[in-house]
Simulated assay, not measured.
Amino acid sequence: MISKLSEINKNARLGDNVSVEAFSSIHSDVEIGAGTWIGSNVTIYPGARIGENCRIFPGAVIAAIPQDLKYKGEDSLVEIGNNTTIREFVTINRGTADKKTTKIGNDCLLMAYVHIAHDCLIHDRVIIANSVQVAGHVNIDDWAFVGGSSAIHQFVKIGMHSMISGGSLVRKDVPPFTKAAREPLSYAGVNSLGLRRRGFEGKTISEIQEVYRYLFLNSWNNSKALEEIEINLPATKERDEIVNFIRSSERGVMKGYIQ
Results as ranks from 00 to 15, higher is better:
residue 196 R to G: 04
residue 198 R to M: 09
residue 181 A to L: 11
residue 202 G to V: 04
residue 192 S to H: 03
residue 212 Y to F: 11
residue 188 A to Y: 09
residue 189 G to E: 08
residue 189 G to A: 11
residue 216 F to L: 03
residue 211 V to T: 08
residue 188 A to I: 10
residue 181 A to R: 10
residue 217 L to S: 07
residue 216 F to R: 01
residue 212 Y to E: 04
residue 191 N to R: 01
residue 206 S to A: 14
residue 192 S to R: 00
residue 209 Q to Y: 02
residue 202 G to F: 04
residue 199 G to I: 10
residue 180 A to S: 15
residue 184 P to T: 09
residue 197 R to P: 10
residue 190 V to C: 00
residue 209 Q to N: 09
residue 214 Y to P: 04
residue 188 A to G: 15
residue 203 K to N: 08
residue 197 R to Y: 10
residue 194 G to E: 05
residue 201 E to L: 09
residue 216 F to I: 02
residue 184 P to L: 09
residue 201 E to G: 15
residue 189 G to Y: 05
residue 218 N to T: 12
residue 185 L to G: 14
residue 196 R to P: 04
residue 200 F to T: 09
residue 197 R to Q: 12
residue 205 I to S: 02
residue 199 G to M: 08
residue 219 S to V: 05
residue 208 I to D: 01
residue 185 L to Y: 15
residue 198 R to F: 06
residue 217 L to E: 04
residue 219 S to L: 06
residue 202 G to A: 11
residue 213 R to Q: 08
residue 181 A to W: 11
residue 216 F to N: 06
residue 189 G to K: 02
residue 211 V to K: 05
residue 199 G to F: 11
residue 189 G to I: 05
residue 200 F to K: 11
residue 187 Y to P: 14
residue 195 L to D: 00
residue 193 L to E: 06
residue 201 E to I: 03
residue 210 E to W: 02
residue 196 R to W: 08
residue 209 Q to P: 07
residue 188 A to W: 06
residue 215 L to K: 02
residue 206 S to C: 06
residue 188 A to E: 02
residue 216 F to G: 04
residue 203 K to G: 05
residue 193 L to R: 03
residue 202 G to M: 06
residue 210 E to Y: 04
residue 209 Q to S: 12
residue 209 Q to V: 07
residue 180 A to F: 12
residue 193 L to H: 04
residue 185 L to F: 14
residue 180 A to N: 13
residue 201 E to K: 13
residue 199 G to V: 11
residue 191 N to T: 01
residue 209 Q to A: 09
residue 212 Y to P: 06
residue 215 L to V: 09
residue 219 S to R: 14
residue 180 A to G: 15
residue 189 G to C: 12
residue 217 L to W: 07
residue 209 Q to D: 08
residue 194 G to I: 04
